[in-house]
C-alpha cells in the first residue's frame, strides 16, 4: 500500500507525560525521518502531543481482533480477497 512508492506509517502520539503512546492514525512518507516530521505536522499541530512514534504499517503483527469470537477469523488479513483489491478497466460490468 504505497503512494508513489511512499509506504504507509502508523503514528503513535504521547499526548502528555505520564500517558502512553496512543495510535493516532497513519500517513504516507518516503522514510522514517520524513514520517516523523509529517506526523508532527499532521497529528500534533494543535499541540496534541509531546512525543511521537512512527512504525511502518507492514511491520505490525496483529492478533485476531477478538480471540473470543469466531466471527473474527483473520480472513480479512488478505486484501486480495476483496474485489476492491483489483483494478478493473472502466466500463467492464458485472464483475
Amino acid at each position: 500500500m504505497t503512494s508513489d512508492g511512499w509506504p504507509l506509517w502508523e503514528v503513535f502520539v504521547r499526548s502528555r507525560r505520564g500517558l502512553s503512546h496512543t495510535h493516532a492514525g497513519s500517513l504516507h512518507a518516503p522514510d522514517a525521518e520524513m514520517a516523523l516530521r509529517n506526523a508532527r505536522d499532521l497529528y500534533t499541530r494543535r499541540s496534541e502531543g509531546v512525543s511521537i512514534w512512527v512504525v511502518p504499517s507492514t511491520e505490525i503483527t496483529a492478533s485476531s481482533p477478538d480471540e473470543k469470537d469466531p466471527f473474527f477469523e483473520p480472513a480479512a488479513d488478505k486484501p486480495y480477497r476483496h474485489p476492491t483489491f483489483y483494478d478493473i478497466p472502466e466500463g467492464v460490468k458485472h464483475l
Partner: peptide
C-alpha cells in the same frame, strides 16, 4: 489534514490512496 485522516480511514479497507 482532514483529507489525510479520511484517506487513511479508506486505506484500512484495502484500497490505497493512489488508487
Amino acid at each position: 489534514g482532514h483529507g489525510l485522516y479520511l484517506y487513511s480511514a479508506a486505506e484500512t479497507l484495502g484500497t490505497s490512496r493512489d488508487e
